[in-house]
Design a protein around this nucleic acid. Structure first.
Lengths: 331, 331
DNA sequence: TTGTAAGCGTTATCAC
DNA sequence: GTGATAACGCTTACAA
């Protein structure tokens, strides 16, 4: 059975009251050097550390931030999680990682996080439906929510995203200057595709260049297989001369899956037969096997801003940040 | 300001005592249907849900499991985290994701987790040094620890791992039967390499087949770049005829990095010039670009067992589980 | 079946 | 600067 020392025990050992013990552990509290020394000494001897649980109950702030994730197939989640945990911990917070896939429906997860008194909820999902969160059955007490790396369609819930308009303008400019004229766009989950707005801007900027038709491919979800299937369906149905000359995929994973399929099953050369563009700058896309042109999100800044919103240092408003085009030999 | 209804308020609204309210929310408590109905009704109206924080303080059990991660470069962490969170949540627990990289040294993280009264700690790291955790400065009250997916060198801390002996026997048998006779092994972080024991068994089984020399390559850490660098150093220093004919990498990421380098910079064919084997069965390794022979860990079972240990349903003892060889065209 | 008293380990606030 | 009182919201006895 676990047994931890409490402030009370330390107090007795040090010959002071438990409130003095608390003061010794409260930066800037008014306490004499002498008392503090004695308290810390006894504390060390008894192996005492404050119980954050009890503190949270009293202060009504847990320092715990729930992070909702629903798409573990995208390896790009990992660097985000790394940065997120790192920056949260740097300001004394900690991440509660909550899987909102399948069985764990969102409302339930929300309820659970709420019951655990988290200070905030970061929606770092991909395919979740905003509608399920819109009504927020939890009444007025719900912890503040923030959406990371996709648009928010929920009223009063701000998002921190990479600026899709800037990104797609850069991408289309690049492709146009490379001479491509028959663009295609492969989207993943329908719900997210609208939220990311990548497809929308892709079409818009092509049409500004006089190219009004963008071939639409759909992968239904975000995975290698889905990307492969998406391009396979298209290529099987379309003869060589009618094919697109460049394919933009909604993220790198789709792009990698599509590239494999194009080369492995259809013997196409990239970029000679079809060029490919992704989004995210996932590490493996940069390998010589793929050398995928892509767009990098300003991960650290995005995370940093969302944390400052949580801390209340920045007004909770949707923020879009510029990313960076990464040109490689797939275009 | 947040305001949640408390059991007391619900009690007043329902015209009962707060303990009756508790009972209505405690499965199997003795309470009349009538009381329960009235309580739940008031609770619903007031939007009441139990405060898990207060409960934890009273019960001395938080249902929170700290997961220590120090290697976010390996995408294989993601499916593990997915399974872990899924299974934890299925039994009413939740994962606290703790980054123990760089600045966040392990002892500090341990202390922090302990102060938050987590029920258990899962060490799901790669390169952490066991020594720093061995003494466990926290005294006797430390939450139980478990190591996931690598060996434990800490006294009294059990590990749940994929059986390296079985795995390497299968792998070496396979390579031998394919006719390879000049094996090389690329290891990553020195600390982990010994913990994984893959190198050790690789050499052992080759030597049982009469091949006593295994070329040792080192990548220092686990990443694409490290894998690429490791093989580059070796190939630059070794002329064609003296080269190994098969390279086993400690995990898939190293293998993918090495393959890129072998093909991109040295124009080698895989497997004709050098065959490659990885470990983990990371999804991308199965793509046609790599088609990497590898070994799959029994992820779900590993997670399941560690959770049962946490719940106390299984004795906390180190467990090794068999995985499965996945043969593809890289060998 | 239900109500009461005591306790979990802190913090906030006010006297001294 | 220090000690005391009350409170945070729940659970676990135990008594009615």
């Amino acid at each position: 059975m676990r047994k931890r020392a409490t402030a009370k025990q330390v107090a007795e050992a040090a010959g002071v009251s438990k409130w003095t013990v608390i003061r010794a552990f409260t930066p800037g509290a008014s306490i004499t050097e002498e008392s503090k020394r004695r308290v810390l000494e006894s504390a060390a001897r008894l192996n005492y550390t404050p119980n954050l649980l009890a503190r949270s109950l009293a202060t009504k702030s847990t320092g715990q931030i729930a992070v909702f994730v629903d798409d573990f197939a995208n390896p790009q989640k990992l660097p985000f999680l790394e940065t997120l945990t790192e920056q949260l911990q740097a300001v004394g917070r900690v991440a509660m990682l909550i899987n909102i896939n399948n069985h764990f429906d969102h409302v339930h997860a929300l309820l659970h996080a709420d019951q655990r008194q988290v200070d905030a909820i970061i929606l770092f999902g991909t395919a979740f439906r905003d509608e399920t969160l819109t009504d927020r059955q939890l009444g007025n007490g719900t912890p503040p929510m923030f959406v990371l790396a996709r648009d928010s369609q929920i009223d009063g819930v701000p998002a921190v995203v990479c600026d899709a308009e800037l990104a797609l303008r850069d991408i289309v400019d690049h492709l146009y200057s490379r001479g491509y004229r028959r663009p295609g766009f492969m989207s993943g989950a329908p719900a997210l595709s609208t939220a990311l707005r990548r497809r929308e801007y892709f079409s818009k900027f092509w049409s500004e260049k006089g190219i009004t038709h963008v071939e639409q491919l759909s992968a239904q979800k975000y995975s290698l297989q889905a990307g492969a299937l998406g391009i396979r369906n298209y290529l099987s149905d379309t003869s060589g001369k009618e094919r697109i000359d460049v394919l933009m995929c909604e993220n790198d994973i789709l792009a990698l899956g599509a590239m494999d399929e194009m080369r492995g099953r259809f013997d196409l050369r990239i970029p000679e037969d079809i060029a490919v563009v992704g989004f995210d700058n996932y590490e493996l896309g940069g390998s010589s096997a793929y050398s995928l042109t892509t767009y990098e999100q300003p991960l650290r800044e995005m995370v940093s801003i969302i944390i400052r919103m949580i801390k209340g240092e920045v007004d909770p408003e949707t923020v879009t940040l510029p990313g960076e085009l990464v040109v490689r030999s797939s275009t």
